[in-house]
Computed example of a mutant assay.
Amino acid sequence: MLLSIVVLSYNRPGQIERILKNFDGVVSSNFNIIIKDDCSPKISEIESVYLKYKSKINVNLILHKNDSNMGYDRNLITAFDITDADYVFLLSDDDYVDGEKIDNLISCLIATRKDIYYTPYSCEGKINRDSLNVETNKVLLPDFSSVIYNSILFSGLVFNRSAVLELDLDRDFLANSIYTQVYIATLLIYNCRSYGTLPNDVLYLGGDGDNYFGKNEAAKNSSLLSDRTKLTSNLNYQPFLLLTIKKVASVTDNRIYSVFIKEYKKRLISYGLRSRHCGYKEHSDFLFKYVNSDLPFFLIPFLSFLMLFLVPKKVAGLINDMGIKIVRKSG
């Protein structure tokens, strides 16, 4: 088997059905679909959807039920243990793919045989992650901030399964890191200094369904992530991102962390601009939570937050939009 599409599933039968419905009429023996369910309370509904499409679609469909509730990171990292396919395409259960375009994706895998691929994704009519639209065998140190930010969304990351299993991973650390996929992607690209890109008409973000972190009981840090719709929620989970980057840098090149922090500070200022655009109260709340968060204290972003009280909120929004268009190339 060349490819397994592994759907990390938790309590979203409706979204699972949407994923499978997109494979109706698709015929292929080059890939299978594995629903990796993490002990969902709605497992009976998920099983009903599975049985309905097991007999309806012409793709090998498997329902893998974890013996116990693993939580986000453990459910992801064990995805490579439940298949013997050459490649694993990770998919969140609230995102979906165009089943008719999978053959084009498979052709890219066969032709290039990289250890890791990035799939651009469509969200609200806009293609994202498309800055990585050229395959490269020359990933340089300054490129790793882009690598990191483009790895945060795990849907559409395609890994060479053998390459992942050969890594010496600190699974105890990763078990509650929230960013297991970022660690693995960064380590693989550091080792081989290359990645592949896949067609941009395959992956779509659904953005609906219950929050995975907030609803999965075994996710140790889920209480911090229960409402990611709030701007200040970034301040809750980003300390875990920084810890993950520091960890992977310690086993590769410590300069990766420095490169990442340089980009991270720009984005932190962007969060400040967004909070000021929302209003004085929201910006005050953002500043208070930043100062009291577990994030490192960065002087320049902090001073910019203070100065933004003098900037009209519409101007702050315009500056942020302009900065994103000019500066941001990833994530």
Rank of each mutant, 00 (worst) to 15 (best):
153 L>G: 12
162 S>V: 06
214 G>C: 06
231 L>E: 00
198 L>C: 01
147 V>F: 00
179 Y>V: 01
206 G>I: 12
130 D>A: 14
210 D>N: 12
228 R>L: 15
195 Y>W: 00
144 F>R: 03
184 I>P: 10
228 R>D: 08
186 T>N: 11
227 D>W: 01
197 T>I: 05
131 S>M: 10
151 S>G: 14
136 T>S: 14
204 Y>G: 05
228 R>A: 02
211 N>P: 10
199 P>A: 01
156 G>M: 11
125 G>V: 07
159 F>L: 08
134 V>I: 10
155 S>L: 12
231 L>C: 03
189 I>Q: 06
232 T>M: 02
149 Y>W: 11
123 C>R: 06
143 D>E: 09
213 F>G: 06
210 D>R: 10
170 D>L: 06
132 L>R: 05
168 D>R: 10
148 I>K: 07
168 D>Q: 12
220 K>V: 15
137 N>P: 05
143 D>I: 06
129 R>G: 01
215 K>G: 15
209 G>Y: 04
137 N>Q: 07
203 L>W: 06
217 E>M: 12
126 K>T: 13
156 G>W: 00
193 R>Q: 13
229 T>Y: 00
218 A>Q: 07
150 N>A: 10
187 L>N: 13
160 N>P: 05
144 F>L: 13
134 V>C: 10
198 L>T: 05
139 V>R: 05
206 G>K: 03
128 N>H: 12
209 G>K: 11
124 E>L: 08
179 Y>M: 06
150 N>L: 12
153 L>V: 15
194 S>C: 12
194 S>N: 15
169 L>T: 15
154 F>Y: 12
180 T>G: 03
195 Y>Q: 01
200 N>C: 12
206 G>R: 04
213 F>A: 05
206 G>V: 03
199 P>H: 08
218 A>Y: 04
142 P>N: 11
230 K>P: 01
134 V>K: 15
161 R>W: 00
209 G>H: 03
216 N>V: 11
214 G>L: 04
211 N>E: 15
208 D>G: 08
219 A>C: 15
157 L>V: 14
159 F>C: 04
210 D>E: 14
171 R>F: 06
180 T>P: 09
225 L>G: 02
167 L>W: 07
232 T>S: 08
153 L>A: 15
223 S>R: 09
179 Y>H: 11
145 S>M: 04
180 T>D: 09
182 V>W: 02
141 L>Q: 03
182 V>I: 13
186 T>M: 09
150 N>D: 15
146 S>T: 14
195 Y>D: 08
227 D>Y: 01
155 S>Q: 11
124 E>V: 03
193 R>L: 03
156 G>D: 08
179 Y>N: 09
167 L>N: 10
184 I>Y: 01
229 T>C: 01
